[in-house]
Amino acid sequence: MTLFRLAGDLSHVLAILLLLYKIWTTKSAAGISGKTQLMFCMVYVTRYLDLFTSFISVYNSTMKVLFISASVATVYLIYFKFKATYDGNHDTFRMEFVIVPALILALIWNYAFTFFEISWAFSIFLEAVAILPQLFMVTKTGEAENITSHYLFALGSYRALYILNWIDRYYFEGHWDPIAVTAGIVQTVLYGDFFYLYFTRVIKGRKLQVLP
């Protein structure tokens, strides 16, 4: 495992825990897109179907269980426990606009036309765009709380670090996974505007505000 990959995974874990911490301590899901979290939950479940069929390492299995359980917990907190605080009226992105194309693409572009491989490819494609409802919500409300900004930064960094890992693996191992790399680049590019605002505003101690 490359250092970039490890840093990426840790950044991913940090993002998930930051979000849970924010919702739990403030007892509020305000400013968080339930739709993005629901889609991330779908991403983990459809990707880690191999959890019980192919063992890779303790690290691998632990992370998979962590991602699925933390994601289910996040969705539960948003839609059940702190439902009253969830800004459903600002979370207006239509999920079918990304779920349907991800599914169609997975049926066309996969490594084998089997249930597991199509489910895996769907998961990779959906992950690339699952953040859109959240970014749309930040744009719509015009701002994000600092901890939400840190969450988005950690989440965006995760796939950006994976890109460095893929470059490293291509050079040193000759390993290359075209589906993951393509989706990973799209995913990272979507965070472009956000990264810019994060560095120019949040790092300088200001709140993240989107200009009208």
Binding site: M1, S57, A112, W120
Partner: peptide, 10 residues
């Protein structure tokens, strides 16, 4: 090849 066998990445 390795793509369908074991996906070591998360």
């Amino acid at each position: 090849d390795t793509n369908t066998a074991a996906k070591d990445e998360l």
